[in-house]
Every structure is written in C-alpha cells, then in structure tokens.
Design a protein around this nucleic acid. Structure first.
Length: 424
RNA sequence: GUGGGCGUAGCUCAGUUGGUUAGAGCGCCUGGUUGUGGUCCAGGAGGUCGGGGGUUCGAGUCCCCUCGUUCACCCCA
C-alpha cells in the first residue's frame, strides 16, 4: 500500500460509518438505560492535572508507564495528562462541586493509555460507565452491577460472565492488611516456583500476582490464601448483602476469590465482566468496584463510591463474536435524481429534509443512469426524478425503487404523497 | 518495554527455485443509441509491491534497519 503522508497515530484509528453509527447506537443504548436508572450524565475534561490520576496508585502501570502527560504553556507550566480512566475525574468533580449524595452519574468518552496496541487494546479507547458517590449501601453496589449486566443483555450478548470478589477494607481497622501479610508470606515461601516477573510483582504490588496468567505461577496462586477468608465482620456483611441482592434480582455471578483489579483504589466489592468469546487475552469487557477512599484522597470529604467502566471497543468485538448488535444500515428514504442542473434537486431535498424525510442526492451533474445507480446504492425506498419533461410541466416523477413503478406528482404534494406511501 | 507472525491496487488476496511492460475477485468510472437502478456484456482508471539501505547482471521474491499491524508476555476496558 502506498504510504500516505499522514496516518492515524499508533494505537488510534478512524471509525467510519457504519462502524461509527454502531458505536453511537451502543452509547445511546447505554445512555438510555443509565438515565432510566436515575443516573445523570457528567461531561468532564479530557485532560486533568496529573495529580488527579496519580491518586490511582503509584504502583500501577496506568500511572507509572502509560500516561499521556504534558506541560501547558502557563507560567509556571502546569503538568496535565490525558485521562487514562474516568473514575478519578468524577471523584475530582465531586470534591469540587459537592453535589448532594448519593450522586449517581454516567459518562462516555475517549480515554488514553500509552500501551502496546493489539486487538481490543488501543491507545485511545472509548468507555462508558457509571459511578455512585456518597453511599456505602451494598444495594447501590447491586444496582450498579445489575445495570451493567442488563446492558450486556440488551445488546443481545449471551456469553458474558460476571466475576465477583471483595477486597476488604484497607487501613488499620480493615482486613486488607492481614490478608496481604498472609499472601506475601505464602508467596515468599514459594518464591522459587514463581516466574521471575511475578517475583518482582511480589515486592511492588503483591495482590497483582494473583492476576498472573502465566502457566508457571498457577500452582502457587491456586494454593494462596484468599481474601474472603480474611474479611472483617463489616466487610463480610457487606459482601453477603451484595450477593443476596444479586440473587434477589436473579443476576448470575461467580465468586472469584483471586479477582484483583489493576487500580489501587478498590475496596470491598470488585467485579469484572468477561466475554470468553473474545480471542486472546483481552476478554475483559468491563470492570469496577468500590473505592471508598478515593474522594478523600483527592481532597474531598470522606465519601464512599462504587462504579464500573465498560470498554466499548471490546464490547463491539464481543458482539461481532456472537453475531449480535450489527451495524445499522445507513440508508436514506429518498434519493433525488436531477439531470436539469441540480437547482431543482436543491429545492426538493430541502423540502423533504425539513419534513423529516431522510434525503440524499448526487453531485457533479452526472448522467441519469449514473445517478440512478447511486440512488440504488443509497438504499432509498423512493427516487424522485427531475428531467427536462418534469421541469417543463412543473411536476416530479416519483419512482418506487422496490417495484419500479412510477408516477408523476405535483411538486407541492410530494411530501404528502411520500408520507401517504410510507404509512401504507 | 520484551519476543514471534504479517505488510502486493480502495477492500480480500495470487504472485513458481530472484529474470521480460506486477495479476484476480469485489468495489469504482464510462459505455451497451432515442431521459431510469438492482442482472448481464465491453472497455477504463487505480500499485515505484509499507519506507530506507544492501547483495546481485537482475528483487515483490534474499539480508539489514525502520514504520505499521497482529499475537504472546506485561497491563487493562
């Protein structure tokens, strides 16, 4: 292929119709369901002060290696970063505006991570998500998870697996510390059997070792202690309530004691939606959990929070794999063919479009045959033909592209005629 | 960041052990007389074979570098 002068940057892509139409349809469907569940949309900046994202965890790759950060032109310059996710932005917004809790919000939009791209993993990717701030009621957790599960269902996806875990509470009073100590002890004792990568991870972020997909680590991981055995009474009760809620609504899930997530802020409830139908390792189509300390980390009042983010690009791949939620066809209702110069087409198109009838035409004064071919391709149900005869008589020819029947109609009654035909 | 596969017309791909003006299908354009599409027929446009360097009398076909893509690790959505 001849090399174009410019191309989309690595890990980014242009999404053309009908793919773009499909993307919008997916986001629209998510918006509809989120609105329907009492969430309001938040449109937040695409970049933030770098500090906002550093709170995601200094030991996470997202913060340390994958940030698109830069300085602005201020004096002194401010260090900013393209958002790698949206939960931190939402928490920053909460701390800034202090809305009345519980604050239920949804969002959609592009996010950025400087990673090696591969199928289902891009440097610019789109997520949709929700957050509920200001309540630690486990039923909020349930509501959030149910929304995600129902959304997948509404797309027609059948093969979505929900994994659920509790990470307990951090801090002195919580149960996380005791668990981490037990886990590190186990990992240290079996250090020689771990992969070299995991041996490094033990030092940096021991929980993440549980997430290793390397064959070599599986035995040690299988024998590791599990968080749910270490939960304090409060966290255990919370976890039980979440499970009971999911059972009550009838959402299937699997307890995954070794489910840990990549960002450090998670507490208690964590969950992940996976599409096993996706080839390769990029089969997590969404995930989330509780982050009861994040707002406070960002300078706000102590505020519990729960939410999820879904990877739109991967969801669409999963839809492809299951053959559901296909791209809608970008068709138009009427195609105007004008071989008299085009001025009539301008007028007819304007009239039809104002009446809400999707209308297209061709340009460049092509032959009738050529214009009819374009009309056919457009998928239009009707063609409006304007030739010298019609122009002379002040009428239009309306052709049904399905059965090839045509009739002459007065210019003034075209809209009425089309509306009449469409309701038949 | 590490390692493997791939990179030929807009798209999907052929291109023999390196050898004359690089092919197909689809798509696109123009025709098949008197203004009309979907089928069919005939023409046509469009590639310096991702880019750069090297080996050779000669490279799309071999070597090196580079970019992109893809898969795995890693990470995550």
């Amino acid at each position: 292929m001849a090399e174009p002068t410019f191309r989309a940057p690595k890990g980014t892509r242009d999404i053309l119709a009908p793919g773009s139409t499909r993307l919008r349809a997916l986001v629209d469907e998510f918006a509809r369901q989120a609105d329907n569940s009492g969430f309001g949309e938040v449109v937040s900046p695409i970049f933030e002060d770098l500090g906002v994202f550093k709170r995601l965890g200094e030991s996470t790759d997202v913060v340390t290696k994958e940030m698109f950060d830069f300085y602005d032109k201020g004096d002194p310059p401010q260090q900013l970063a393209l958002r790698p996710e949206l939960t931190a932005s939402i928490c920053r917004a909460y701390a800034e505006h202090r809305p009345v809790p519980p604050w239920k919000v949804w969002y959609e939009g592009p996010q950025f991570r400087y990673e090696q791209p591969q199928a289902g993993r891009y440097r610019q990717f789109t997520q949709v998500g929700v957050e509920v701030l200001g309540t630690d009621d486990p039923q909020a957790d349930v509501d959030v998870i149910v929304l995600g599960a129902r959304f997948f269902e509404s797309l027609g996806l059948v093969r979505i697996e929900l994994a659920l875990n509790s990470l307990g509470s951090p801090g002195d009073s919580g149960s996380r510390r005791a668990y981490e100590q037990a886990l590190v002890k186990h990992l240290e004792q079996n250090r020689s059997r771990l992969s070299t990568q995991s041996q490094v991870t033990v030092e940096r972020n021991p929980l993440r070792v549980l997430d290793s997909k390397r064959e070599q680590d599986s035995a040690v991981i299988a024998g590791a202690p599990v968080m749910v055995d270490f939960l304090d009474d409060e966290s255990a009760a919370h976890f039980a309530a979440v499970r009971a809620g999911l059972d009550a609504v009838g959402i299937a899930y699997e307890i995954s004691p070794r489910l840990v997530r990549g960002l450090d802020y998670y507490t208690r409830t964590t969950f992940e939606f996976a599409a096993p139908g996706l080839a390769g390792a990029q089969n997590a189509v969404g995930g989330g959990g509780r982050y009861d300390g994040l707002v406070e980390d960002l300078g706000g009042p102590p505020t519990p929070g729960i939410g999820f983010a879904l990877g739109v690009d991967r969801i669409l791949l999963a839809c492809d794999a299951e053959g559901v939620f296909g791209a809608p066809s970008n068709t138009v209702d009427v195609f105007v063919v004008d071989v008299t110069g085009g001025t009539e087409a301008l007028k007819v198109c304007d009239r039809l479009r104002q009446a809400g009838i999707a209308t297209d035409r061709s340009y460049g004064g092509r032959s009738m045959k050529a214009q009819m071919k374009v009309a056919d391709r457009s998928g239009a149900e009707f063609a409006v033909i304007i030739g010298e005869d019609e122009l002379a008589c002040g009428v239009l020819t309306l052709r049904d592209m399905g059965d090839s029947s045509q009739q002459r109609v007065a210019a003034g009654s075209l809209v009425d005629e089309l509306i009449r035909k469409r309701t038949l």
